[in-house]
């Protein structure tokens, strides 16, 4: 896919407000609202697009050889369940 190359000037919030017909006072309010948020430093969760929650570590399953109780049955390999351990930081 060939992207569209853009060279035009970057629209300011005032440009956007003028095009859409938003009043000057409301524009100032909205800029203030955005800035209050925009000034906050970005967290690691933002950059990863994930909520910061304790992550889990998976323990790999192991293969165990067991002898069946059934008559004439040979040794059978069964897998244990994968365990998930919650880790809190």
């Amino acid at each position: 896919m060939k992207p569209i190359r853009v060279n035009s000037a970057f629209a300011t919030p005032y440009d956007t407000a003028r095009i859409l017909g938003v009043s000057r006072a409301r524009t100032e309010e909205l800029i203030k609202l955005a800035r209050r948020n925009g000034n906050q430093p970005m967290t690691a969760a933002d950059s990863l697009d994930r909520a910061s929650k304790p992550h889990s570590i998976k323990k790999s399953s192991t293969s165990v050889a067991r002898k069946s109780r059934v008559r004439n049955a040979g040794a059978r390999v069964s897998n244990t369940k994968t365990k998930t351990v919650k880790v809190n930081h």
């Binding site: 970057f10 300011t12 919030p13 956007t16 859409l20 938003v22 909205l30 800029i31 609202l33 925009g38």
Partner: peptide, 16 residues
């Protein structure tokens, strides 16, 4: 819609 567009534009002006 208009408010969201102006808010997004202000945020873009700040962040990028």
């Amino acid at each position: 819609f208009r408010d969201l567009c102006v808010l997004a534009s202000a945020a873009a002006d700040e962040i990028i």
